[in-house]
Design a protein around this nucleic acid. Sequence first.
DNA 1: TTTACTGCAAATCTTTTGCATCAAC
DNA 2: GTTGATGCAAAAGATTTGCAGTAAA
Lengths: 140, 140
Amino acid sequence: MKESIDLTSKLMAQGYRLTPQRMMVLSAIQKSDNHISAEEIYAQVVAGYPCVNISTVYRTLELLKRLDLVTETDLGGGRVRYHPADKGHHHHLVCQECGRIIDLGETVLASLGNRLHREYGFRADLKHLAIFGRCADCQG
Amino acid sequence: MKESIDLTSKLMAQGYRLTPQRMMVLSAIQKSDNHISAEEIYAQVVAGYPCVNISTVYRTLELLKRLDLVTETDLGGGRVRYHPADKGHHHHLVCQECGRIIDLGETVLASLGNRLHREYGFRADLKHLAIFGRCADCQG
DNA sequence: TTTACTGCAAATCTTTTGCATCAAC
DNA sequence: GTTGATGCAAAAGATTTGCAGTAAA
């Protein structure tokens, strides 16, 4: 359980406390094979510990983001999703038809990033990029 | 006033009515030199016609999108912006530091789109893409 | 005159916040 | 025992909806 060691040490290092709620939120994110929303995390946590409040989930997500244990991706349409930071950054192709999320390898957008920097002086945060469209299955 | 001819004919063609509210919403979007939010549109419209309600603005935006008179762009973080469809599609670089929005020409992402289609079979809707990061001025 | 559109108020939905209590250290 | 974290409830912000009155055709 590398991630719980990470959590413990990162929390301790900055004077935060290790609470069951925090462990459960992190664990829910680690367990999900892909991107999970705040509501879904809440549902998972409540299943094991019913009296947890959703505001705690939000506060914990805020903290875990700050500690770089989870990454937040804004998939548009108000859909904010989380995934473990240690699973690596990746880009997302979001199918607007079926909602499927396809991960792109980190390298795919590298040349785009370089070009944006060269031509616009813009440092793109391509880690959190979501590209919308239609996946192969949904093209009628 | 090409756009009001467009509006009139598109409304008539489908049995919709031409109301001052609709004209004012469209005009606010046309006048804005860039991307405008629902609240900003509302503020503009109210300035000229105080009793307009914001729900009418939202309903009108819905209609104008359906009629392809305005384009909606989700810039993330719950920021949805509108711009005239006839001003052409473009991509956006969004500075997370100062909020500035830089438009990219349509061609910049063409090769990316081709690659996504070739390698993933994914038809990317790059018209509405927003890329986050830091603009040249905000890199400390 | 018909019925689509509007204004109003209330409802949603998601996320945030104030505060008293509770528990990790 | 401290004081940071939690649960609860209420607030906030953005958007949607039901409904009765209004006005475009």
